[in-house]
Design a protein around this nucleic acid. Structure first.
Ligand SMILES: [Mn+2]
Ligand SMILES: [Mn+2]
Ligand SMILES: [Zn+2]
Ligand SMILES: [Zn+2]
Lengths: 141, 141
DNA sequence: TGTGTTACTGCAACTATTTGCGATTACAAA
DNA sequence: TTTGTAATCGCAAATAGTTGCAGTAACACA
């Protein structure tokens, strides 16, 4: 997903291309990796001073529901990034240094299959963040 | 962990046995399974009208840090139960019917080992809840 | 049993997020 | 280009949870 494709999704589904939406989209698209809501909001207010946090939240939720952005809970805060065109990935987030490391979904397929086969339970395993301690922080201790 | 053991933990570590703490403990101990914070608070206010939500939160966090209760995020709300004396367990929580099913930690050991060996990442995998759709809800669809 | 220390509490203010509502505006159709 | 209308917005109020602070009370010790 890139900026252009995202705009096309909005247009195709009949959503209005408001300046607020385009600004939030640009910020998330230009940001490197996950961005926290306040980070996005502060940046948006610079470009458009009347911007309200409620609009940022509503816009991010819309984008998420449309698949344009992907939401990930890091700690207790939600973060957003443009949906990865290569497909899903997960994160290992270090609770000591707050570093985030990507994790291929492949590492969870086995787990998913087990739950599905043993219990008939279909887990939501899309772009989630697992907390823990990274190798660096473990060693320097 | 039972009521008596929990009181012993508090006493041994030098924490005061306030009526507020004993009330919250009794409520969680008597409740069947996970209880939401507001559920605990409402019940506590009946027993002790001056009870404040802040005290309930502080008490639950203390109990969690002492290992007396176990915290589990169900949806976006935190729930608490007395720590399982048989050792940890996880939950599969159905996002359709809100049902919660216990899951033995055994199912996650392989995943833990993989992350540890491949990335040196030590995940926090204690008493967590994985969201998804249960067998019942999947079939009646 | 009485007293002092300080852990703990209630309260109120604060943060993060959500929601209702009346005003605005994107955009389809004229 | 103008206009009608529903979608969207800003604002303010509401909800869940956290935190600073000044007063209260648990409990160690006399
Ligand atoms: Mn990601
Ligand atoms: Mn449990
Ligand atoms: Zn780290
Ligand atoms: Zn279900």
């Amino acid at each position: 997903m890139d900026h252009e494709q995202a705009v096309a999704v909005l247009r195709d589904k009949g959503y209005r291309l408001t300046p607020q939406r385009l600004i939030v989209l640009s910020i998330v698209a230009d940001g490197a990796g996950h961005m926290g809501v306040d980070e996005i909001f502060q940046s948006a207010k610079t470009a458009y001073p009347y911007m309200d946090v409620a609009t940022v939240y509503r816009t991010l939720h819309l984008f998420r529901n449309l698949g344009v952005v992907t939401e990930v809970a890091i700690g207790d805060r939600l973060h957003y990034e443009l949906t990865d065109p290569l497909g899903g990935h997960h994160h290992m987030v270090c609770r000591v240094c707050d570093g985030a490391f990507n994790l291929s979904p492949h590492y969870l397929e086995e787990f998913r299959n087990t739950l599905s086969q043993e219990f008939g339970f279909e887990p939501d395993l899309e772009h989630f963040a697992i907390s823990g301690v990274c190798a660096g922080c473990r060693d320097s201790n």
